[in-house]
Amino acid sequence: MDIIDLLRRPWPWYIAGPIIGLTVPALLLMGNKMLGISSTLRHVCAMCFPANVPFLKYNWRDKLWNIFFAIGLLLGGFIGGVLLQPDALMPLSPDTVNSLQQLGISPQKGILPVEIFSWAHLFTWQHLLIVAGGGFLVGFGTRYSGGCTSGHGISGLSTMQWPSLVATILFFTSGILTANFILPLLLK
């Protein structure tokens, strides 16, 4: 009982970080697979609507492991978010609560702010730009750069690939600038 209780509480970074990191050697040992999640988006496109696009014409069946990994992520979200739902979230920094409140975002109740990410509030052009426009850029940008936070940030950096270092520095910088300067314009 105590263990379940412990698991239900939010996990500190020093527990989650190593688990996430050790995924890289685990996947290599399981069959020379490189951790990378944005590739699953390409495989789904290749599987469902290849439409004769050369970049989508390959044997996605060889990459099925990646799809299984993504299904695992869905399951992990269910186990971690529903079965092991915590009584309370980790407190957010008061400064962040303040900055977000000035943008009309109420203190967190879940992991997404309902003022933007909910069916009731999605259909304004600003919110569509954030949710759908942002999502589009996540898909477009990660494929253009050949990886995301996991593929470049974790796999790439831990195997000391300098193109991944370039990518990681740039998407962090771009994310920081966007969150601080573009997001406020869309929310006010």
Binding site: G135, G139, T149, A167, L170
Partner: peptide, 20 residues
């Protein structure tokens, strides 16, 4: 790597979500 990462960063900053 450069153009793509810059675009991905914008999407990440807005949605707060990377693919995982």
């Amino acid at each position: 790597y450069v153009y793509g990462s810059l675009l991905f960063g914008i999407g990440w900053g807005l949605t707060g979500a990377c693919p995982g």
